[in-house]
C-alpha cells in the first residue's frame, strides 16, 4: 500500500514538475487523453476511421522524422518500409493464416531487414544523391511485385487480409495506442544519447568521426529504427484496410510524408504528428463539402505554402516558440508568461 502511494506521489510530482509546467507538454497530454476518450463521447464511425488512418500515418511520419530530421538522411523512398511491412504482414496472414498479432511484428522485422539493406547500400551517399537513390527502392520493389503476380496479387495487391480486431472502436484503440507508444518511443530515442549523436552526425559528420564516433554504424541504425516504425505502420494499415496493394509503395506516399514533416517541423517528432493530425482530417473533411470538394488539394497546397512561408521551421516549433521561452543560461524551456527561469532563475528576455 505504501509502495503504491509512494509511486502515485512520485508520478504526481513528475506530472506537476515536468509536464504541467510547459504548455507544449500540457497540450500533448490533453491531446493524448482526448484521443483515448474520444470514442466514449463521440462514437462516429467516420471520425474514428479518419483518426485511425491519421494515427497510422502519424507513426509513419514520425519514423521519417527520426531518419531525416535527426540523422539528416533525407529519404524520398520511405514508402518502401511501409510497403514491406504491409505486404509481409498481408502475405503471412493470407497464405499461412497466421494471427495478425504475429504477422504485424514480423512485418516490422521484415522492414528492419529492408532498412538494413537500404542503409548499407546508401551508406556512402549524402544529400540529394542519397535522396534520389532511396527513391529508387520502392520502384524496384514494385517491379518485383508486378513480376510475381501469383504471390503479390500484381496490380491489385493482396486483399481480404484478416483484421487484428473487428469493431471500428477496437481498430481505433489499436491504432491510437500503438501510435502513442511508437511516437513516445521515437521521442525517447531522439532525446537520448543516441539521438544526440544523430543530431551531431547531421550537423557535421566529419567532426563526429574525428571525435571517435562510428558514424556508419549510427547511420545504419537510424535506418533500422526508422524502418521498424514505418513497418509497424504498414502492417497496421494492411490489417485495418484488409488490403496491401501497390498504393502502399507509391512515390506519392513517400512525398506525402516529407510534406507532413516539413509542415509540422523536422527533428521534433511532435511536429510531423501534429501535421498529420491537422492535414489528414482537414483534407478529408473538406472533401465532404460541395464548396471545397474540387479544390481541396489546392487548399491543402495553399495551407502548406503559407506555413512554409511564415513558419520556415514548421508549425510545431512556431507554436512552441510562441508559448514558451528558452532560458539564455540553462537552455531549459519556460512558459512565455514567466519572467525568470523556473530552474536557474535567470532573467528571461
Amino acid at each position: 500500500m505504501n509502495a503504491v502511494s509512494a509511486l502515485a506521489a512520485r508520478s504526481w510530482a513528475n506530472l506537476r514538475n515536468e509536464v504541467l509546467v510547459l504548455p507544449s507538454r500540457i497540450a500533448v497530454l490533453v491531446w493524448a487523453l482526448a484521443l483515448l476518450l474520444l470514442p466514449l463521447v463521440w462514437g462516429d464511425a467516420y471520425v474514428m476511421r479518419v483518426i485511425t488512418m491519421a494515427a497510422i500515418f502519424a507513426i509513419f511520419a514520425a519514423s521519417w522524422d527520426l531518419l531525416a530530421g535527426y540523422s539528416g538522411q533525407v529519404s524520398f523512398g520511405h514508402a518502401i518500409f511501409f510497403g514491406v511491412g504491409a505486404y509481409t504482414s498481408a502475405l503471412l496472414s493470407k497464405h499461412f493464416d497466421l494471427s495478425p498479432w504475429l504477422t504485424m511484428p514480423i512485418g516490422a522485422a521484415a522492414a528492419v531487414l529492408c532498412g538494413m539493406l537500404v542503409g548499407l547500400l546508401c551508406l556512402r551517399m549524402r544529400g540529394s544523391y542519397l535522396s534520389l537513390a532511396t527513391m529508387s527502392f520502392p520502384l524496384i520493389l514494385l517491379g518485383l511485385l508486378f513480376a510475381l503476380p501469383e504471390l503479390s496479387g500484381g496490380e491489385l495487391g493482396i486483399s481480404g487480409v484478416r483484421r487484428a480486431v473487428v469493431s471500428p472502436v477496437s481498430n481505433y484503440y489499436l491504432a491510437v495506442v500503438v501510435m502513442l507508444a511508437s511516437v513516445f518511443g521515437i521521442w525517447k530515442i531522439g532525446d537520448s544519447k543516441f539521438g544526440l549523436i544523430l543530431h551531431a552526425i547531421r550537423e557535421d559528420e566529419v567532426a563526429c568521426r574525428a571525435s571517435g564516433i562510428n558514424t556508419p554504424r549510427y547511420k545504419v541504425l537510424a535506418f533500422l529504427l526508422s524502418a521498424s516504425f514505418a513497418g509497424i505502420a504498414g502492417a497496421l494499415f494492411a490489417h485495418f484496410m484488409r488490403l496491401a496493394g501497390p498504393s502502399t509503395l507509391e512515390l506519392a506516399l513517400s512525398f506525402q510524408v516529407v510534406i507532413w514533416c516539413v509542415f509540422g517541423g523536422m527533428a521534433t517528432v511532435y511536429g510531423p504528428v501534429l501535421a498529420v493530425f491537422i492535414l489528414y482530417p482537414l483534407t478529408d473533411f473538406l472533401g465532404g463539402f460541395d464548396l471545397f470538394r474540387d479544390v481541396r488539394l489546392l487548399v491543402f497546397a495553399v495551407i502548406v505554402l503559407l506555413v512554409l512561408l511564415f513558419m520556415p521551421r514548421g508549425l510545431g516549433p512556431w507554436l512552441r516558440d510562441r508559448a514558451e521561452r528558452v532560458c539564455p543560461r540553462c537552455k531549459s524551456r519556460n512558459v512565455f508568461t514567466r519572467k525568470q527561469c523556473r530552474l536557474c532563475e535567470a532573467e528571461l528576455r
Binding site: D44, Y46, M241, D284, G287
Partner: peptide, 24 residues
C-alpha cells in the same frame, strides 16, 4: 449524394469517403 473518392490518387481517401457516405 456526390462522394469524391479521390481513388486514383489515394486508396485510404476512397475508404474514408465510402464510410462518410454510409455513416454520415
Amino acid at each position: 449524394v456526390k462522394i469524391d473518392t479521390n481513388e486514383i490518387l489515394s486508396v485510404p481517401d476512397a475508404t474514408n469517403a465510402i464510410e462518410r457516405a454510409i455513416t454520415r
